[in-house]
Design a protein around this nucleic acid. Structure first.
Lengths: 200, 200
DNA sequence: CCTTGTACCGACCGATCGTTCGGTTACTCT
DNA sequence: AGAGTAACCGAACGATCGGTCGGTACAAGG
């Protein structure tokens, strides 16, 4: 609920303020009054730039979804051995999560109360499904363990990746996207236990 | 927003209805009117059983937190090699998450808008810290990989575990807590990649 | 029969919700 | 100079918010 000032607003610059507040207070917990205070303009002025609260949400989750689906179109996500493509997608997901942190954060928190939220949930499921197919293919190649169900493994790896939005903060001297992506790939593919000490 | 009926309500039975609705619509997105419809009694009658909306939240997150902290007091979480205690705690966390699914779900979605929510966040951080110490100890024993920071690894494993509330549904013929716990332990400690195919 | 207490209710409270409306200011284009 | 427009504002809209109030129905206990 800090107060910001800009020369003049565009829908995009207003969106960046709104998304920050949405993430701090939750979408439902944020009133247009909160947004106007944070943006430094009056409540009614917000309607000069966007049609309403829900448009802000729609723009935000669209941006996040576009970036995520974009990963699947990249060269290294489309060619090569499935397990390598999967590793690439996991790494890129982490990078996109961090590059578009507030937008992806908002996307991952939608509950489904409005049409916009339900649409976002559906597109998320579609993305998850695409990645699950990649893992399934890698399992078919014999490159990933067969003793954990593909669907379950996908969900758990997604859980690991998506949790980044709950703690990552880009404050200067912290770690970068690359380091986090390395850690996620090493943990997701290699596990916690020291290499060579297999059991269970 | 289905309509339920009970003989008469106690704070506890009312809580179970409220928590269900909170999880469906989000805490902020749930009005007392929503709760009254779901409980099948009038809005004012709710105040006969509890002091208000926030008490329902407080009761719910307290229950979840008590169960989680209870894990750390159990015999197998206190004695033995650190890596074994850690594995036990991870397994029990999954079991508690599933046994108390709606309550833990609500706990994990708290944002910090009210005093109750901030208190819940603080206790969560304390629990996370206790588990992080366990992982640190296991790293000191040389039982877990040293190439991923302890703090980061803790967060990622928590992310994997906590994500269960986003997809697990206890519908009859699905998998049980035991199976999910097995999968989490295998993935968290052993990773996706087939044993013996180490790299990176 | 009468009191007491539990479980509940409809009507209502002031506050706040997302949104609309009728302006005003200031800059650009001709 | 005058017209047009982008950016903004305060005041107010009906709806809904969490919560309060004075009451009723009813069962139990004496």
């Amino acid at each position: 609920m800090t107060t910001a000032r800009r020369d003049t607003y565009t829908p995009e610059t207003l969106l960046s303020v709104a998304v920050r507040v949405f993430n701090e207070r939750g979408y439902d917990g944020t009133s247009m009054e909160h947004l106007s205070k944070a943006a430094g303009i009056s409540k009614s002025s917000i309607y000069h730039h966007v049609s309403g609260k829900e448009e802000l949400l729609r723009r935000a989750v669209s941006r996040a979804l576009d970036e995520l689906f974009g990963i699947l179109d990249e060269e290294q996500a489309r060619t090569g051995r499935a397990v390598e493509r999967l590793e690439y997608v996991v790494r890129r997901m982490v990078e996109v999560l961090i590059a578009e942190l507030p937008y992806v954060t908002l996307l991952l928190r939608v509950r489904g109360n409005t049409v916009t939220e339900r649409w976002a949930l559906e597109r998320r499921r579609e993305f998850d499904h695409r990645v699950a197919e990649l893992l399934k293919e890698a399992a078919g190649d014999g490159d990933v363990r067969a003793d954990v169900e593909v669907r379950l493994a996908t969900r758990l790896v997604f859980g690991m990746i998506n949790s980044i939005v709950e703690w990552y903060r880009p404050d200067g001297r912290g770690m970068g996207a690359r380091e986090v992506a390395d850690a996620v790939v090493q943990l997701a593919f290699g596990g916690l236990r020291k290499a060579g000490a297999a059991r269970g």
